[in-house]
């Protein structure tokens, strides 16, 4: 009986914790909306923080940073003249998603 309860508990716990989406986004969409609606230092910083969180911890099925996140974080860094780190983020986008190369290399050239 105890074994059955243990198995049920384990199954319940694992099913609860199993990711259902490819990626996790935290509060990205609200920060994205605020930045889109009113671009300023506060909304930019808030969106940057969301990108950092998304990059730092992914609990989705893939366990990878979602497409576009490194590059858009790089875009915010470009806007704040943090060129070296911006280029580093853009390169990471290409490494993780080679299909982004056509577009991202164009952006990197614009920064040179």
């Amino acid at each position: 009986m105890k074994r059955i309860i243990l198995i049920i508990t384990i199954v319940s716990l694992t099913s609860c914790s199993a990711p259902t989406n490819l990626y996790t986004w935290n509060k990205y969409e609200n920060s994205s909306y605020n930045f889109l609606k009113n671009t300023n230092e506060t909304t930019s910083n808030k969106l940057s923080e969301e990108y950092k969180k998304i990059i730092k911890k992914q609990k989705g099925i893939r366990g990878e940073v979602p497409p576009g996140v490194y590059a858009d974080y790089g875009f915010l860094l470009l806007q704040s003249n943090n060129m070296a780190q911006a280029r580093e983020m853009l390169q990471k986008e290409i490494e993780l998603y080679p299909e982004s190369k056509v577009f991202i290399e164009r952006i990197i050239k614009l920064t040179e």
Partner: peptide
Amino acid sequence: DAKEYFHSTIYTPIADAGYYVIPPFLSMEI
């Protein structure tokens, strides 16, 4: 305001469906 409501929320479901989505803010700028 409806344009921004949708523009800020269309990226994640397409990425979650398994596609590579061109970075939305970078592409918007271009």
